[in-house]
Design a protein around this nucleic acid. Sequence first.
RNA 1: GGCCCCGUAGCUCAGUUGGAUAGAGCGUUUGGCUACGAACCAAAAGGUCGGGAGUUCGAAUCUCUCCGGGGUCACCA
Length: 569
Amino acid sequence: MARDELAGLIERAALAAQARGLLPDVKLPEFTVEPPTRAEHGDYATNLAMRLARAARMSPTAIAATLIQSLPANDVIACAEVAGAGFINLTLNPQWVARRIAKILEVDGAYGNNSTGGGRRVQIEFVSANPTGPLHAASGRAASLGAALGNLLRASGWQVELEYYVNDAGSRLAVFGESILARYLAARGVTGPRTEVPKEGYLGEYVTEYATHLAAEHGDRFEVMAIEDAIPLLARMGAEHMIERHRADMAALGIEFDVWFREQSLHDSGDVTAIVDELRQRGHVADRDGAVWFQTTALGDDRDNVLVRSNGTPGYMTADIAYHRNKFITRGFDKVIDIWGADHQGHVGRMKASMQAIDLDPERLTILLHQMVVLRRGAEVVTMSKRQGNIIALSDVIEEVGPDACRFFFLTRSADSQMDFDLELAKRQAADNPVYYVQYSHARTSSILQVASSRGIDPPTGADAAPYSHPGEIALVRFLIHYPQVVADAATDLEPHRLTFAAQELASLFNAFYRDCRVLPSDHVPLDTATVRSRLLLVAATRAVLAHVLSLIGVSAPDRMDRSDEPTE
RNA sequence: GGCCCCGUAGCUCAGUUGGAUAGAGCGUUUGGCUACGAACCAAAAGGUCGGGAGUUCGAAUCUCUCCGGGGUCACCA
């Protein structure tokens, strides 16, 4: 990547200067090499001279001058100059840049990838909603985040597995079964207390719909059955039904999980009881009030947690510890990323503590929290309670605004930032979604290449690489050169939202280039062949990078867009 | 009350991990198609970066403190 190459040259300059006694022999500090905010400051700028000033006891500008003098011979940097308080502004060699642009096409879709993952295995677990109801719109955030992060890490040389954890064994499930039974009996024409949904039960319309469907399909089957048998059976059937709907929603968003992991499997295999024994052996357990407690306070958490309730059933956390043990020890992932909503924030410390308790390095587990999505219909804030049933279903959102707009939208804010989601607004603004701006630019590149081809102009190749000089070309080229670094940094920092911003910036740069720099000759604008070919190369390179970033985000890169494709009514 | 996230243009949000004159989209005003796609482009207006103090060559970014918004503190998940 350009930045690494430049940093290497700068570092060699510093070492050379030290060897010749031009700079004192101090340890080199961390320094940055990055595109400056202002174009006239060159392609890249480094702050090494300023960072070195204190230890070297020299003025930053003097150090900068010395570093420039000591730069080794190379074909990357065309010009280096001292600026401001001691910055070194670097201008890339136009020949080198042109060759780099040509390479974008030669590597065939791989431009933008990096190998920082080094083939290590990472698992990303996300969404993992309870199968007691349909996914609500807010789940789109975790889904978009997780899927894009997976793409990002895969493009960075990681072996990625996407996983959905299905809580098919929790105590909520029984309540779900009771809720279904009540609605089912009502649908069968039964009256009285048996048709009342339990106190903490699920009141959503979807329960009634499902129960009515059951009544039609199965007749009196669950009515004549013993209630102790009917509840777990209905719970299981209802859960399977919901899981299929979750799967369908994810598929509609273009997200396919490698593994749908069942909590029940951990109970069946004995892993859940085994983890309690293991924790006891390691001395992290206390028996109190008839329950078994995990002494997380001893590990820095603010309270202890129940492993086995006094009624003998395992606590929520017990299966979760067994689950994470399974991820690391049974399946051997090098790294695990869990994506949780901010409402689970309090659980982070406990999870880390439990890693420590079973002798796993907590650093291998990253818990990525995203802030809440506030759902509303116009001015009315809609609660996200699945129990109350007053939800905006994710499937409705996908249907209304389309998968591309949905995926892109949820990545237009950083995970740390709270998000308002207004379904009415989303519908109305579907056509204004920035995803279309980016896709339009991609279609435009395709169109230009198409027109060129129809006029008998050969597709551009590496042989067309020639220095770019127009400001519109240069701004675009700069972005393309820097792009792989954007991907690498977003992957390192686990911040996929940078992709949507990068995509919009690239589209904007391309559109400005398109206005200022004619690519194909016309009656009004004659162009020499070399210019046409080098610009065509730039268009093709832009197209490749737009396609790359769109694929990381998880949306399509269409070659044409028609107004009639608008998802508005 | 403890812990976590946020507070940046009228609105919604970025801000390359401490750098040069703080940016984008939407909205407002104005201009641009007989041209490779106008779902586009350009210009203008719009800011005590919540307030205050500190750290240093340099702070939207780091520390402390206060104010405001959200989340969370169960033998629920």
